[in-house]
Computed example of a mutant assay.
Amino acid sequence: MNEPAVYVVAVGTDLPGPPISNADLGKRFGGTGVWEQWAQTYIGTHHRHLARDLDTGEVRYTLADMCSAAAGRALAAAGVTPGEVDLVVLGTSSPDLLMPATVNVVADRVGIDGVPTYQLQSGCTGAVQALDVAHKMLLSGRYRTALVLGADSCAKHLDVHTDPSKLRPAEQVNGMLFGDGAGAAVLRTEPAPGAAHLRHVELRLVGAGREPGQVVAWFGAGDGPPTAPVVEDYKAIEDQVPAMAAGTVRRMVDALDWADGDVDYLLPPQLSGRMTARIVEAMAVAGAQEISCVAELGNTGNAVPFFQLERLLPRMAPGDRAVGVAIESSKWIEAGFALEAV
């Protein structure tokens, strides 16, 4: 009898609106040349997509809008109907509402009903947590097909009427780092052409006794108390994430008994263009081809792994192996997953 296995069959993504360059941000908030040069030199991210209009402040796309579009594309690419989906899992740090859960709004929109749904509240490891839940449930033998989503929108934390010169450096960094987006993957217990075997999912909290690297409040910049809704210790993140990512990839390779050089593709954390380069260097996965998207899309939080997977799957030949890593700084979580093309 064959051992149970789970396969990533197809991926779909969605971005809100046109790309916004560093020059666009500089033009909107003043100091075009200085802003653009600083962003290019210290952040290394060139574009991002935002759900909020920079001129009016209007939120034009909700998280449910983006998730529904990504889910529809993933299902279509997989050739799976909504009625064939046995469970839905969403990882996000920025749901549209406390209730109803965004995952249930999305399921309704794409025509899924009568199945278990789960919404995981988490930062950058939420997508891997969603993969982990779906992976375990599919391996149980009770379910055949899962729709897994990861999405985030920083729109609620962007006050387009603010004077950036009055913001602390950490708040200015957040404005450059993050973008909005959503991703979805169809997981099944049967292989299909172009699918990848989800060999391993790694997830562990390592935050005991450590101060949070990021705190996000339950309000946005324009509708809450007169304090910053997002507080980030970027220096701590810069110091700690590379080593955490390196340890995560090493544990996964060891768990799978893969030798050095067996990894063909590396999907590293996507903090920023500059930070990702440092992280990849620390991970030291010799010979692996890097799959990154942060320079063009910004840090899209829980959507990141799906944008990476969307680029990865068409490139993988049978037998190719890939490792993805995500690190969450809010209370320090290490996460990752490993794939092998069938």
Rank of each mutant, 00 (worst) to 15 (best):
A134L: 00
T102I: 00
A78M: 15
L167N: 12
E171H: 13
L87I: 03
L149F: 04
L198N: 08
V115Y: 09
V128Y: 09
V85M: 11
A77S: 15
V133N: 01
K156L: 01
H135R: 15
P193G: 09
V115R: 07
K136R: 14
D86M: 08
T145H: 10
V128N: 10
S140H: 07
G179R: 01
Q129P: 00
V105K: 08
R73E: 15
G141K: 07
H161W: 12
M99C: 06
G123N: 10
V80K: 13
H197S: 09
L149Y: 02
D108R: 13
L187M: 09
V115H: 03
G179W: 03
A76K: 15
T145Q: 09
G179L: 03
Y118H: 06
V173T: 13
V88E: 06
C124W: 05
L158P: 02
T189Q: 11
Q172T: 14
E84Y: 12
T162F: 10
L177T: 06
H157R: 09
V110P: 08
V105C: 01
M66A: 00
V110Y: 14
G123R: 05
V128T: 14
E190V: 12
S122L: 10
V88Q: 01
D113N: 05
G91A: 01
D152C: 00
G126S: 05
V128M: 09
A107L: 08
N104F: 00
G150W: 00
R142I: 00
M137R: 11
H197A: 09
G141S: 05
V105H: 04
L138K: 07
P82C: 06
R73M: 13
V173N: 08
G72A: 07
K156T: 01
A184E: 07
A155E: 04
C154E: 04
M137G: 01
A134W: 02
T92H: 02
C124E: 10
A195G: 13
L138I: 10
A170F: 15
Q129G: 04
P100R: 00
M66P: 02
R168I: 10
L177A: 05
C124S: 09
R109L: 08
G91N: 01
Q121W: 03
K156V: 02
